[in-house]
Write a protein that binds this DNA or RNA. Sequence first.
DNA 1: CTGAAAGCGCTAACAC
DNA 2: GTGTTAGCGCTTTCAG
Lengths: 337, 337
Amino acid sequence: MPEAPRRQPTLDEVAERAGVSRTAASRVLNNAPHVSKAKRDAVQKAIRELGYVPNATARALATRRASAVVLAITDDDSALGQDTPFYSQAIAGVTTVLEETGLELMLVLVNSPRSRSKLQDVLQTHSAAGVMLMGRHGDDPLAALAEQADMPVVFGGRPLNVEPHFYVDSDNRGGARAATEHLIARGRSRIAAITGPLDSDAGLARHRGYLDAMAVAGLDADRVAHGDYTEASGTQAMQALLNQYPDLDAVVAGNDTMAISALRALTTAGRRVPEDVAVTGFDDYLAARHTAPPLTTVHQSIQAWGREMARMLLAVIDGEQPSPLILPTRLIVRDSS
Amino acid sequence: MPEAPRRQPTLDEVAERAGVSRTAASRVLNNAPHVSKAKRDAVQKAIRELGYVPNATARALATRRASAVVLAITDDDSALGQDTPFYSQAIAGVTTVLEETGLELMLVLVNSPRSRSKLQDVLQTHSAAGVMLMGRHGDDPLAALAEQADMPVVFGGRPLNVEPHFYVDSDNRGGARAATEHLIARGRSRIAAITGPLDSDAGLARHRGYLDAMAVAGLDADRVAHGDYTEASGTQAMQALLNQYPDLDAVVAGNDTMAISALRALTTAGRRVPEDVAVTGFDDYLAARHTAPPLTTVHQSIQAWGREMARMLLAVIDGEQPSPLILPTRLIVRDSS
DNA sequence: CTGAAAGCGCTAACAC
DNA sequence: GTGTTAGCGCTTTCAG
């Protein structure tokens, strides 16, 4: 048997081989009606024999419908490069759902003028079937642009400058509140907070959760320092708190990274955790399980985030109007509190 | 000013507006020769005024050249979903390089029959400009298929069943050897190893590095247990080693995750780290800095991996024949050794 | 330097 | 049911 020609077979070749018109072949391919069983079988046989795979590009051009969705991750300086599994978990969730649909996943890291304008092009030219936008939006104009764009867009997390129609978010407020309540229940009362960036919805919400719990308990919620999710900021915030409020007996941090560095700062300052000061984090990264002592923290499933974002996008693409989704968080109590 | 029509402008419209032929417009777009300066300017002006963005799909169809490369991540059960930043770092590196080229990034998680056949289709139909393949290849037939595919393919890490032309890898052997030598230099002699999966090149290479160092020092390298990079396997391996070789005074683990659980197993068994037993890991995840005691480990820059993979792929796409690249690793000494 | 014409591979009316 | 006819928006010979 001679080598088959290297070129990919086209639909015309399939049709010819099956002895039918290209139209019929096309119909079979998209299992459209108006094809006799006989032809249908013949075409399918030909497809199999030729190893035919439809050309997605040609199809996209003809149907004016893109075969890919984009996942855009906006973050100041590529938090994707950070040492956290956040985005890869989201990606895993997204692909899980997309896999069943035949849609491709295009990844765009929005961290440069160039990538920004690329995303804008997508939004403007509708060169994708839909867009998922995640990352710390803050009041990024891109978020507003995306929301206005006349195409399916879902948000992961909420931007501050627009109220998106479709989004998935974690119950940040509830999670932070639960952590704070837990501390209160354990008898702490001089509870400090190390917040994340307050120019993002998640940062704000987490801080509000803390305020909620403190207010309900009638406790003083003034012991506050601000960080930006980095280790350095956590250390610094903890030191500042220790200086200003040496009497504090607990601290709820806006994420695990800051909680971990706070833990160290406390130890360095001679405070015992949790005897003298209890600490809670947020996110439940792997590292949280391995600190000394292990960190009490608020768990959220980022993979579920990704999954739900993708599902929601598919629904929007199908013309539905899904409601926003707030994913639950769960307090994981370990020895640091 | 009335609303502009919603539809995206086409090249014909640009041409018309500029008062030139579509051919000329196309030439300007691809800055091809044979266009007078006057026309060139007119076209560029029209492009700007109309906000024209070329339709990538149409272009791809006409040129029979794809505008995207795929990053395929093969892993038994979606290690992407694991709690490690590995893949997101690689992705960050890849996008950094791709950004400058106008190529899109398609992500394929190869963890199901469906996604496997999807990747095969890409390989067969050349529906992408190139493919980067990373993950634990072992002797995955897909690796062989990819290497044979008549299109640009570069590997991240080396498969066992084929010798790829183009790949990027870490100096696993050198790293493991350095860690072991460090232990030896510190006076340890009854050094055990917890290996990663030995059906992957990285796992093997790391184990060989250990053997190298032990051989050179004339030490006995029999204290070996096997793991699969998971916490559970690390714990189990450590316990087995402790049973079989209660005299061990150090252990080099195949990755940080196993090292961390070994650390715990040791502590639980009443051994002090590093006084009684020293421990080293591999990878240098965030968690390694926060264990008690902090973990001595071998650092590798996964982002560099991604970057170099992308660069290499671009070279291959351009018809070059780049040499394989072995990225250096670096021993990070912390308190666990 | 210039433009007309012929597709890339597929789908979508529209008649039969 | 069936096939014919036009394109989707862009590039690329190929004559001028």
